[in-house]
Design a protein around this nucleic acid. Structure first.
Lengths: 195, 195
DNA sequence: CGAAAATTTGACATGACTCAACTGGAGTGG
DNA sequence: CCACTCCAGTTGAGTCATGTCAAATTTTCG
């Protein structure tokens, strides 16, 4: 039981790695502790990170030019957080922010160490490909629900899918994640409670 | 100039491949011609495909239990279409359909030949990882716009991003893609035209 | 040409937002 | 430990954006 066991179990989920491979992996990780309510930078510079949450919780969100904010991800232990965004490829001014909500422990890859990992142990490309596929599948599903479902149904589906998130995250963050106003979510909850 | 040049150029975009690698790649592709208005199967069976459109256009859409339909992708030449979906991993009954809209030419990977590709030429894992990352970035951006923008703004942004799609795809498909009703899109267009 | 599908248009219904006021904790400093 | 502040959540009134339905019109295509 080392500090690496969580992340090693996670990365090995779809691709079984040799001990030597995992040692390379671990040697490239940077361990970070960050107190709650800290915004992990995103000040324009190319700072593409790939983070794995060991402990605590965080949110990832967009802000566009007109100040609109949408939470793209609510994360707890064992989640991957990366700042992949459209603007990485195009050049729109949209921005991804990551902010800790509770005190957190992370593992972080810098872009260089990630490339270095792929060079030294190319099979990690596969693990990351599968990770991306899953992430994409979840995002597509969420896009679908956002479009097709009513606010109440979205909230009910959210509760089913992430039962423990309801107590863990502030209500207005959940509202932003679901794409509804905090006031309206409050009314939905009131209505559901009275049934 | 062979029939493979389009797809080879595309797959080499982020990872430069050797001639031998591309030959392996090409040998595993299945070339298909499909007339318009054909639904590529998705009848429950595990038929995870990865397709590349050479010619024509197609749409990918979800239908959930209650019959709601949302277009996840409108595709033209040079686009990748895959049936990655939440239900691949979980076991919800949601379904992805792919339907040709014009007469199409495709290259298709079966799941086996894709695995075989990765075994014979592992560097393709990298190309697919990057492909997935891009796809994810686009989907996240679209999720953001769906939540944060008004219907009119979404349509205007759509026109800017895909100017040629407006004539190429039926209006009600564009409406479904944007998550608005076809009638309302018609009214938006009317309003924009009068400005 | 004729049938079927797509689009338009208008009347109406409603889901969801905004704004503002109020309530209730949680944290802070004296 | 109290008083104060601050933020999250609630509630209600009014409004707006968007959806629904149905009919009229136009386009597509066999």
């Amino acid at each position: 039981m080392t500090v690496y066991s969580q992340i090693n179990k996670n990365i090995s989920r779809y691709v079984p790695f040799e001990k030597e491979e995992l040692e390379i992996f671990n040697s490239l990780l940077e361990h970070k502790k960050i107190v709650k309510k800290t915004t992990l930078l995103r000040a324009g510079e190319q700072c593409s990170f790939e983070a794995f949450l060991i402990k605590g919780s965080a949110r990832k969100y967009y802000i566009d030019g007109s100040g609109a904010e949408v939470i793209l991800q609510l994360a707890v232990e064992d989640a991957w957080l990366s700042d992949i965004s459209f603007s990485m490829y195009e050049d729109s001014p949209s921005n991804v922010f990551i902010e800790t909500l509770e005190d957190c422990e992370f593992f972080v890859f810098s872009p260089e160490s990630k490339e270095s990992l792929f060079k030294k142990a190319p099979r990690f490309e596969r693990a990351y490909r599968i990770l991306m596929e899953r992430h994409l599948a979840v995002t597509q599903n969420r896009l679908f629900e956002t479009i097709a479902k009513t606010a109440t149904d979205k909230y009910v589906a959210f509760l089913e899918q992430y039962p423990e998130y309801a107590n863990r995250f502030a209500q207005h963050y959940i509202a932003s994640y679901l794409g509804i106003s905090p006031e309206f979510l409050s009314k939905i909850r009131n209505k559901l409670a009275r049934l």
